[in-house]
Design a protein around this nucleic acid. Structure first.
Length: 281
DNA sequence: CATTTCACCTGGTGGC
DNA sequence: TGCCACCAGGTGAAAT
């Protein structure tokens, strides 16, 4: 469900409410595919740990953990929400929605809960060990570059000589980390770029427009708490408002807000793709 | 290596 | 009310 703005909103909300808190007890479901790291190892690793900070990288939420006495994080709990994952900070007595997968009871009395009906989300635990060369001992980092901070030169270089459609390139997380279906469609609309154009054929000025519009769209969406299309809510259970600003996403057949031409829907890279045939060329 | 397709899941919606 | 087709915020593995 969640793309960069939703994940950023959740990470901020969780950070605000649980940093400094300590994991008292933990419960995990037995759904195997949810646990990137074996659930027993996650249980052992989390209980008794202090949460120093929570932040986003790409579409991942990273909780920095350590012993309550220390000041340096020595482990990480990494949450990927998939399509329908939710990460919520609640009171212990609040109703547990269907499909719960993790419940961390905190010393403050709060609970950090993860639930996910479609089970595309993943939970991962890392014991950080600076001397180890193993990947699972290194701090987690999204593979692609962050669209909020990427430079013009790096942005251009990502797409150079690429034969795939620009929309498919935007969705590739090893190029840009955090862009998903909504913000790919919306940023291409605001850039006047047809999603099917070959990424490598876009001129430097058009790529620069895309970089700027993408950053604007994502920043604006973060300010509005993300897009709630069906069921997305932030760490406090509150819906976002950016869906009210969507110009093309899920507006098939409705008039373009600029020129009144009906919005067209095609399939591209296996995803529904929405664009204005007149404004985007 | 670059690119495309598909499987993985549950649930909501709208047509009949 | 039920049944069915279709759609949905993601991504990794397999195929090409």
């Amino acid at each position: 469900m969640p793309e960069l703005p939703e994940v950023e909103t959740i990470a901020r909300g969780v950070h605000a409410r649980v940093s400094g808190d300590v994991v008292h007890e933990a419960w995990f479901s037995t759904v195997p595919q949810t646990f990137q790291t074996p659930r027993t190892k996650q249980l052992r690793g989390l209980v008794g740990k202090k949460i120093f900070a929570v932040h986003r990288t790409g579409k991942h939420i990273v909780c920095e953990l350590g012993t309550p006495q220390s000041h340096e994080p020595s482990a990480q709990w990494i949450v990927h929400l998939g399509m329908t994952g939710r990460l919520l900070v609640t009171t212990p007595d609040s109703v547990v929605p269907p499909h719960p997968h993790a419940r961390l009871q905190l010393v403050s009395g709060r609970e950090l809960r993860f639930g996910d009906p479609r089970r595309f989300g993943r939970l991962e635990f890392r014991d950080l060990n600076p001397t180890s060369r193993k990947k699972e001992c290194k701090p987690f980092n999204a593979p692609g570059l962050d669209p909020l901070t990427i430079t013009s030169g790096d942005f251009r270089a990502l797409f150079k000589n690429r034969k795939l459609a620009i929309k498919a390139a935007l969705l590739n997380q090893s190029l840009l980390a955090g862009v998903g279906n909504i913000y790919a469609d919306e940023s291409l609309f605001h850039s006047g770029i047809r999603p099917t154009l070959q990424a490598g054929k876009l001129s430097t000025p058009r790529l620069e427009i895309l970089r700027l519009r993408l950053k604007e769209v994502l920043t604006h969406a973060i300010e509005l708490g993300g897009s709630s299309v069906s069921d997305y809510v932030d760490a406090n259970g509150v819906r976002g408002f950016f869906q009210l600003e969507h110009c093309v996403y899920l507006r098939t057949g409705e008039p373009c807000l600029t020129c009144n031409t009906p919005i067209r829907r095609i399939e591209l890279a296996g995803r529904g793709t929405h664009y204005c045939p007149k404004c985007q060329r």
